[in-house]
Design a protein around this nucleic acid. Structure first.
Length: 424
RNA sequence: AGAGGAGUGGUAGAGCGGUUUAAUACACCGGUCUUGAAAACCGGAGACCUUCACGGGUCCGGGGGUUCGAAUCCCUCCUCCUCUGCCA
């Protein structure tokens, strides 16, 4: 969430930024925040004064009791009773104001970086880089949802049988390809200096709030009612929450973590013809990279992370493009996001395989993730994350782009991991 | 899952209704001494809200309650430990 202080001191900067998102109620909400914050501070002040007074009087009662002045003590007691009632009212008011303020803050998305282009939707994203030749396929080339049947490597029907739609079963070389990709991605992140993390794949409510999945994406996560736990939609949630309520020693920065996890998304209401096969699933595998940096370094780190992701795509020899998302297409929490899309030759479309974002202090503010700078001042850190990479669409692109009449060729770099060169 | 015990500052650990503004030790930072270091001695030190500042307030696992007053008593939740049971 945004820092109240920033809204108070630079409301115009905030409003201009939010306008880029086409976030409609921005001026009303920001105004309300500023007003509520003012009330909050005033209420806090008067409650504190009242409490300070009560504390002094309580001590006096103690002294009076000790010196045997029971009468005077009792008189003070009855006076305190009224003060206490007043204090209770003020405290309730304060709690109420704080709650309202919290709700308001949850409603306001991050302010986009000044370099983020204006725009409403995907069509306004800016292509900043494109790499690799679009392959030409042989006659009779198939989309991946046909290829997986032809070679019997991924089975959706079996998934339906044991779980439901969107839960594919990977078999034989299909399963091995998954394992190979995961290992390849993890080894590459290791080489790039990321510490590997194996987090839990269920998280509690506080973690959901920490990274911003709650409250607004409540319905997108699977929820285990009996234990009050959510299945993670991405490893970003447990890994970033590792640093919730932490003051990081400066010498530990930047923090670089990578983790492989399955990811679970309910994807309520987002099914249609364009999400066939592996394009959208309820459960999929992903390696995620997360960094926590000092504010002044975060955009350099964003570039570094994009570079890492692009390196992976280049090693896999997949044609891709890099998009700088426009204000209207960016995620709620992000200040700047680059999407990487690979070209899926049989579907003739670009598929998003990675999203790399700088959240600046938006998550850190919720998480209370800070460090102490050289002057001894406590400051919020910046958090960033990116997929490196999401498996299903990479698999779809490899299958489609690398198909030949005699089978599917495994990219060179993966062969040491798969142990086979062809799926045939 | 059942029974019992416990959660206090970076760590260990006292306090069990009002001299706690949380003892003490270790660790930490600064200073004196020293060629430098160690030792010794002196001093400092957390987080949050609020204030231009002085200051005030909050924080003893979380939440609620009793009381003029709670680290201390009560309720509840969470976590850890021990024993029993179950189990990859």
């Amino acid at each position: 969430m945004l820092q109240v202080q920033v809204m108070r001191e630079q409301p115009n900067r905030v409003l201009e930024g939010l306008a880029k998102r086409h976030f409609k109620e921005a001026d009303v909400l920001v105004q309300q925040v500023i007003e509520l914050d003012k009330i909050r501070r005033e209420t806090q002040q008067s409650a504190d004064d009242l409490r300070a007074n009560s504390n002094t009087n309580s001590k006096k009662i103690g002294e009076l009791m000790k010196t045997g002045k029971i009468e005077d003590a009792n008189q003070l007691k009855s006076q305190l009773a009224t003060d206490k009632e007043l204090l209770k009212k003020k405290e309730e008011g304060l709690a109420d104001v704080e709650k309202q303020l919290q709700h308001l803050l949850y409603k306001i998305p991050n302010v986009p970086h000044t370099h983020v282009p204006a725009g409403r939707g995907a069509e306004d994203n800016k292509e900043v880089y494109i790499h690799g030749a679009i392959p030409t396929l042989h006659n009779g080339a198939l989309p991946h949802w046909e290829l997986i049947k032809k070679y019997d490597i991924i089975d959706f029907d079996l998934g339906v049988k044991i779980s439901g739609a969107g839960f594919p079963v990977y078999k034989g070389k299909g399963a091995k390809l998954q394992r190979a990709l995961i290992n390849f991605f993890l080894n590459e992140s290791d080489k790039a200096g990321y510490t590997e993390i194996q987090p839990p794949i269920v998280i509690n409510e506080a973690s959901g709030y920490g990274t911003g999945q709650l409250p607004d994406k409540e319905g997108q996560m699977y929820f285990i009612n009996e234990d009050g736990l959510y299945l993670i939609p991405t490893a970003e949630v447990p890994i970033t929450n590792l640093y919730r309520d932490v003051i990081v020693p400066e010498e530990n920065l930047p923090i670089k973590n990578a983790g492989y996890t399955p990811c679970f998304r309910r994807e309520a209401g987002s099914w249609g013809a364009h999400v066939r096969g592996l394009n959208r699933l309820h459960q999929f595998d992903k390696v995620e990279i997360v960094q926590v940096t000092k504010p002044e370094n975060s955009y350099q780190v964003l570039d570094e992370m994009c570079g890492h992701v692009q390196g992976l795509l280049e090693k896999l020899q997949l044609p891709y493009r890099k998009l700088l998302l426009c204000g209207g297409d960016m995620g709620f929490n992000s200040a700047m996001t680059y999407d990487m899309e690979v070209f899926s030759a049989a579907q003739q479309r670009w598929l998003e395989v990675s999203s790399v974002s700088n959240f600046e202090t938006y998550q850190a503010n919720r998480l209370k993730l800070r460090y102490k700078n050289k002057e001894g001042k406590i400051q919020l850190l910046h958090t960033l994350n990116g997929s490196a990479l999401a498996l299903p669409r990479i698999v779809a692109a490899i299958l489609e782009n690398n198909q030949t009449e005699k089978g599917i060729k495994i990219p060179e770099v993966l062969r040491p991991y798969t142990g086979f060169d062809w799926i045939d």
